[in-house]
Design a protein around this nucleic acid. Structure first.
Lengths: 206, 206
DNA sequence: TGATTTCTCCAGCGTTTGATGGAAACGATA
DNA sequence: TATCGTTTCCATCAAACGCTGGAGAAATCA
């Protein structure tokens, strides 16, 4: 039951955000009384935080999977594959993108106790993209680039309903074009230096 | 007064979203009674829609300005300048980015009557970036690329508080790194074909 | 000046919201 | 079967919410 509530809460919080979601909406989605929800999860904010931790954990696992999948392949092919994989995955679990963007952008009326943690697994991805030599230590510019990449995907996933109507496509075409666009925009930036020479950590920073 | 309310509403809606904002918060920000707010703007949703139209108009004007500013310059320089200009502008008016992303991603509990319109002024930008020959007719792939570019900027503006804490920088350094990162990610994609040969549909300066 | 319109606020309405106490139903064990 | 801990729901609360009627202040014009 506790799990079923969490699952429903992911979807609803993902669609409507924290303030847009009511505990009654979640209870109704599960088909239970709201006091059952409170029995299992305590107050709304606690449930929300559990949801956030849950989706971060899912994303972390997926990123590790993808990293393993593309390991050893040449950079361009690696990015190509990673973009395909991540886009497919997030389109199947759009609440992940939604909730992540919500946490980035939307203030809640009450301060959030969930601290700002740099997801440490980003280090692996950055390494895999040739941005850093040391997985543990990620210089600020590499973090910025990682954010740009991840956000680019999240945007197209989260905004799908809006953009679908805006662009007048069906879902399938949209998904294909998202991948195409992401590759068009992202790959050249991370491969051009590679063609000329190794980038690693040295690329005259500061 | 009507204008002062709109201005405050922009800020508050931008920070907290539609459901996260209460009419009392806006009234308090202006320093008036909430019924004064209702006298001037009617129901909450009407005020919200007025705010959305207002920020779209501001953004439209700024994009036209920027297009004029970079007109005629070589493509790389053009994008460089445009990124600087737009980033500075949106950092000074972060509620624009916030509200645009909110509209993309967040569902409101009640259906929004504001229709999904492709901002027609995007045609100018796309033309300026060498993506389309005809400003009026924008093929889907060009629209997708425009979205990717605009969203990349909005992300860094809207997420500034989160990312600032995440990256442990001060605002000034962050602003500089945002520009740097945007240029790193965006420029190669739109200039590589240029260096090698003519772009898709034929590039024209007027 | 007084009459008319425009604006602002006080007080409060009906509803929704987050949250709880207590009783009943359930399930395992002995 | 009786016992005990766990789970679920009904009824309800206080606060916050969107929103409004009506009285008075301020501005406009005769």
């Amino acid at each position: 039951m506790k799990g079923r509530i969490l699952e429903a809460a992911r979807r609803i919080f993902g669609e409507y955000g924290f303030h847009g979601t009511t505990t009654r909406m979640i209870a109704q989605e599960v088909g239970i009384d709201i006091s059952t929800l409170y029995y299992h999860w305590g107050e709304k904010r606690d449930l929300y935080e559990a949801v956030v931790l849950d989706i971060y954990e899912d994303l972390r696992r997926k990123l590790i999977d993808v990293e393993r999948l593309v390991h050893g392949k040449p950079l361009t092919h690696r990015m190509d594959l990673a973009i395909d994989e991540m886009t497919d995955y997030l389109f199947e679990n759009p609440e992940i993108s939604n909730l992540i963007l919500f946490r980035y952008f939307a203030k809640t009326r009450h301060a959030s106790p969930l601290d700002f943690r740099v997801p440490e697994f980003m280090g692996n991805i950055a390494h895999s993209m040739g941005l850093v030599a040391d997985k543990k230590q990620m210089p600020p510019d590499a973090r910025m680039k990682m954010l740009a990449v991840m956000n680019a995907i999240h945007n197209f996933v989260s905004g799908q309903h809006f953009f679908l109507a805006m662009l007048d496509m069906d879902r399938e075409e949209y998904l294909a074009r998202v991948k195409e666009t992401l590759k068009f925009v992202l790959i050249p930036a991370f491969t051009r230096d590679h063609a000329a020479g190794p980038v690693a950590s040295g690329q005259k920073e500061d």
